[in-house]
């Protein structure tokens, strides 16, 4: 397995790095939203809102965590289906699936480089925030943060694998990625606390893992909350992960088998 992980990372790094301008721009473009929200924070500074008090009251810190992690989780959802789509369109999927590696392993390993690259972009966004814009990590409860990230990661990988299964079946316009992309920024509270929304929208937001993920990450970083203090959100996130992950793998396997039966696996 180790050689396969290295092989996939090497393949994707070599391909990405040979599109030089795109490679550089992908890192530069991750910094721009940080600057935008820094200035938005300047604009709303001092207007005071109770909704932010739960997270320490600073809008820039709130928004930086919201946009950076939503971006990272969005990638977790998009990367699997994106890789399937690219392999279908490039004509490599048939060659890959005729190899001695099963389809589930292929789809999981195809996404490792994207996560590494997105992780580097996430760190870059926080590095700019800490070094130049006054973001503060001093309150962070590291253990609670790591655990929250792990649970969130599993939940979003599961959505990503559902999305990949959707791509195998529907080709274009698969619904999971669309649903997450369209709704996460609005309902998940990436840019504003969900408590400012009407109650029925707040209720709706509780269906989506992004709501709990951003909440626990913010509380662990900005307020230093421990795991027992966030047990309710972590339990819900944990239950979502435990149900969604095995279900997503089974769904993807079913989609590939169905594609082989229908003969539509390689079409796009």
């Amino acid at each position: 397995m180790y050689f396969k992980i290295v092989g996939f990372i090497k393949r994707d790094y070599l391909i990405e790095s040979r599109y030089k301008l795109n490679f550089i721009l992908s890192f530069v473009s991750s910094i721009l939203p940080v600057l935008s929200f820094f200035f938005v924070a300047k604009l709303v500074e001092g207007t005071g809102t109770d909704s932010l008090d739960k997270y320490g009251g600073d809008y820039f810190s709130f928004a930086l965590i919201g946009i950076s992690f939503t971006r990272f989780f969005q990638l977790a959802v998009d990367t699997f289906s994106g890789n399937i789509k690219r392999a279908q369109m490039a004509g490599c999927l048939e060659a890959i699936l005729s190899s001695q590696t099963d389809s589930k392993t292929v789809v999981l390993l195809s996404s490792i480089y994207s996560f590494v690259a997105a992780g580097v972009q996430l760190l870059l966004m926080f590095a700019v925030g800490v070094l130049f814009l006054g973001f503060d990590f001093s309150n962070t409860n590291v253990l609670a943060l790591v655990f929250s990230l792990l649970l969130s990661f599993i939940a979003f990988i599961s959505l990503g694998i559902f999305s990949a299964a959707g791509t195998v079946i529907f080709k274009q316009g698969e619904p999971v990625g669309w649903l997450f992309g369209a709704i996460s920024a609005l309902l998940g509270g990436a840019m504003f606390p969900i408590s400012v929304m009407p109650e029925w929208l707040q209720f709706l937001s509780k269906i989506f893992p992004i709501t709990y993920a951003l909440d626990v990450i913010r509380l662990a970083i900005l307020k230093g909350y421990s795991m027992p203090m966030m047990w309710e959100q972590l339990s819900i996130l944990g239950m979502m992960s435990c149900v969604l992950f095995p279900l997503s793998l089974r769904t993807f396997h079913w989609a590939v088998e169905q594609g082989k039966r229908d003969g539509t696996l390689m079409s796009y």
Binding site: F3, K4, G7, F8, K10, R11, L14, I15, R18, Y19, A90, G91, C92, E94, A95, I96, S98, S99, Q100, T101, V106
Partner: peptide, 30 residues
């Protein structure tokens, strides 16, 4: 399987790198 599809390779990788990747998928390494 020798596919007739020319696009079944990664065009930005060299011939050697392509074979290395597909070899790893076939459980060969080192």
């Amino acid at each position: 399987f020798v596919l007739n599809e020319e696009r079944s390779f990664y065009w930005r990788l060299s011939g050697f790198e392509n074979l290395e990747f597909f070899g790893i998928l076939d459980n060969l390494h080192g």
